[in-house]
């Protein structure tokens, strides 16, 4: 499988606090990577850095061999239609309806007719099993529903990579199952993904490879089987 995304020697700090100290890894086409690590190890910062919401101090971020870290905000806009970000808190626009939230990227980046936009939005809602919510406001939705709508909005432009920031955090088992099923559907479509999570069972179920961040570096990388079979006490501490 070809590399779709490459991160080389990423260094990032906030004032004196070093977050990443030379992270290097690749994401292959169609692959889903689970990014684990204790709180504050910079998992979300890494996702934000990939799409340029945070600037890295040094290193290289290559998407199809294009250096993303050298692009201006303006130049990053088209890239962000190909690498989507699903926010931890969904970050839905709270002043417009669910339908308008999903239609927003389509109106911005395509010349589709209104009927076609409606069709695409309904397909996306169908994918997350929330067709009945199309006219509701985000505040009318539960946390789990908001996350699924956020995912639907992230995938509506058919991106090549989806970045999931703790999609199951704070959800009950029923909603977690629904979120996992949604991620599995994206995966079945061949979309690559990076999944930041503390939920080991979700990571084991949907990820092809696990990466664990530790003190700004990659403490472990391997397949799910290698993760489960590891004798390393650091890795084992995540499996307890």
């Amino acid at each position: 499988m070809e590399n779709i995304l490459e991160l080389k020697n990423i260094v990032k700090s906030f004032d004196d606090k070093k977050i990443h100290q030379g992270l290097t890894f690749t994401l292959k086409h169609g692959e889903t990577i689970g990014l684990l690590g204790r709180s504050g190890t910079g998992k979300s910062v890494l996702l934000r850095s990939i799409i340029g919401l945070e600037q890295i101090d040094s290193g290289e971020i290559l998407f199809h061999e294009q250096r993303l870290d050298l692009l201006t905000e303006q130049q990053l806009y088209p890239v962000r239609t190909r690498i989507s970000y699903s926010f931890q808190n969904a970050a839905l626009f709270d002043s417009i309806s669910v339908f308008e939230n999903l239609a927003y990227p389509l109106f911005e980046h395509t010349n589709l007719a209104e009927a076609e936009v409606e069709k695409r939005v309904m397909e996306a809602l169908q994918m997350v099993d929330l067709t009945e919510s199309r006219d509701l406001m985000p505040s009318d939705l539960s946390g789990g529903m908001q996350k699924r709508i956020g995912m639907a909005r992230a995938m509506i432009l058919n991106p090549e990579i989806l970045l999931f920031d703790e999609p199951t955090a704070g959800l009950d088992p029923v909603n977690i199952e629904m979120v996992i099923e949604t991620i599995e559907k994206f995966k079945a479509q061949g979309i690559s993904g990076i999944l930041v999570t503390h939920d080991i069972s979700t990571a084991k179920r949907v990820c092809d490879r696990i990466l664990i961040l530790n003190e700004g570096k990659i403490g472990f990388t391997g397949t799910v089987d290698e993760f489960e079979g590891s004798d390393d006490p650091f890795v084992k501490s995540f499996l307890l």
């Binding site: 934000r48 962000r80 926010f87 839905l92 927003y104 990227p105 911005e108 980046h109 909005r153």
Partner: peptide, 10 residues
């Protein structure tokens, strides 16, 4: 939501 506007390429 501002980050979401940016993340959606706008």
């Amino acid at each position: 939501q501002i980050d979401a506007i940016r993340a959606l390429g706008t």
